[in-house]
Amino acid sequence: MIYTKLPHTDIEVSKICLGTMTWGNQNTEAEGHEQMDYAVDQGINFFDTAELYPIPAHPDRYAHTEMIIGNWFKKNKNRDQVVLASKIAGNGDYSKFIRTTGFSKEAIISAVNGSLERLQTDYIDLYQLHWPERSTNYFGQRGYEHDITDHWEDNFHQVLETFRDLIREGKIRQVGISNETPWGTMRYLEESKVHSSLPRMITIQNPYNLLNRIFEIGLSEIAVREQIGLLAYSPLGFGVLSGKYLGGSLPEKSRLALFPNYNRYAGANATKATQKYFELATHHGMSLSQMALAFVNTRPFVTSTIIGATTMDQLKQNIGTMEVGISNELLKGINAIHQEIPNPSP
């Protein structure tokens, strides 16, 4: 396993982070425990979860993923071996059953305390805002359109003040953002620069894969120059970049079969690009998933790649990509396809 450090900290994390959002829905608690056991045995020390998980969000399954992780910690007594990340849910139709107060001081404190209890731990290493509270482009929205009905008021300072207090209490160690835009990222960074007592956002968790390289347009320069590390999620584009849907295939129990509305990476251009990437990977003697994950793993602005799996075979294959490199010739081929069909899935 390759290790790196969360930017601006001495916290060492594996280059692969174990994603957990299927546990409690597509995966049972026993299967989640099996995945964590195997991941730790392979040198993975970084887990990412959220109060919203499992996905799709549902009141009957609220926070079950955190409970599964907490039970694993209790059983194994190994909390100190894991760098644990979790998130507070933002406002949205799919999170109304959680709370309606956004990122107010009260909401953040309540969310942190709830996660600590479910995770059966005294602290969370990295606590993240799951998506912006304001109306902006995230979750598949390609461009920004201003919403005049959005009554959000700038609360970047207040959010960081609340995080500062929680850090002082020892409940969280570091903070990060997720599904954020360049403007939001810089607002948080500038707020902590101007007010030195406020904590700095050290990571950004956004989608990044061969079908969606939008992060490179504005955020990659920020990530490099400001040293805010990308925790890349959906590196296989909801499983599309495994190639399992090519030729019109729809495997039983796959995400698209179970949740047809999770079709962000299933459009005509995305399918066309996936086929080209598949042919390129085959030409270079590797599977499509190997190439797709290796590409993300080797980008200089990526701190860790979040992988998720519903089967142990998938998990083993994904972890094995750490041994796969990207040659200059292969990178040229990838970029040629990207130039032909840029970002077919937002």
Rank of each mutant, 00 (worst) to 15 (best):
2 I>E: 12
5 K>V: 07
5 K>R: 13
6 L>P: 08
7 P>R: 01
15 K>R: 15
18 L>Y: 02
20 T>E: 01
22 T>D: 00
26 Q>E: 10
27 N>T: 04
27 N>E: 01
29 E>Q: 13
36 M>L: 14
37 D>C: 10
40 V>Y: 07
40 V>Q: 11
45 N>R: 06
49 T>A: 09
51 E>L: 10
51 E>M: 11
51 E>Y: 04
55 I>A: 08
56 P>C: 05
58 H>W: 03
58 H>A: 14
61 R>G: 04
62 Y>K: 12
65 T>L: 00
68 I>M: 11
69 I>R: 08
69 I>K: 06
71 N>P: 01
72 W>L: 02
77 K>H: 14
85 A>H: 11
86 S>Q: 05
88 I>A: 15
90 G>S: 07
91 N>H: 11
93 D>G: 12
101 T>Y: 02
108 I>G: 13
109 I>V: 15
111 A>F: 07
114 G>P: 08
115 S>H: 06
117 E>I: 06
119 L>V: 09
121 T>D: 05
125 D>I: 07
125 D>C: 04
126 L>H: 05
128 Q>G: 04
132 P>G: 12
133 E>G: 09
149 T>F: 10
150 D>M: 02
151 H>E: 10
152 W>C: 05
152 W>F: 15
153 E>K: 14
154 D>P: 05
158 Q>W: 03
158 Q>P: 03
159 V>L: 11
162 T>E: 11
167 I>E: 10
172 I>T: 04
179 N>H: 09
180 E>L: 12
183 W>D: 13
187 R>S: 13
193 K>L: 08
193 K>P: 00
198 L>I: 07
200 R>D: 00
202 I>F: 07
202 I>H: 07
207 P>L: 01
215 F>R: 06
216 E>A: 07
216 E>T: 12
217 I>N: 13
217 I>E: 15
218 G>W: 03
218 G>E: 15
219 L>G: 08
224 V>W: 04
230 L>G: 00
243 G>E: 07
247 G>C: 10
250 L>I: 07
252 E>Y: 08
259 F>L: 00
259 F>I: 05
267 G>E: 02
271 T>Y: 01
279 E>S: 10
282 T>M: 11
288 L>T: 14
292 A>M: 09
293 L>E: 07
294 A>S: 14
301 F>K: 03
302 V>T: 10
306 I>L: 10
312 M>K: 15
312 M>H: 14
319 I>C: 03
324 V>L: 03
329 E>S: 15
334 I>M: 09
334 I>E: 08
335 N>Q: 05
338 H>N: 14
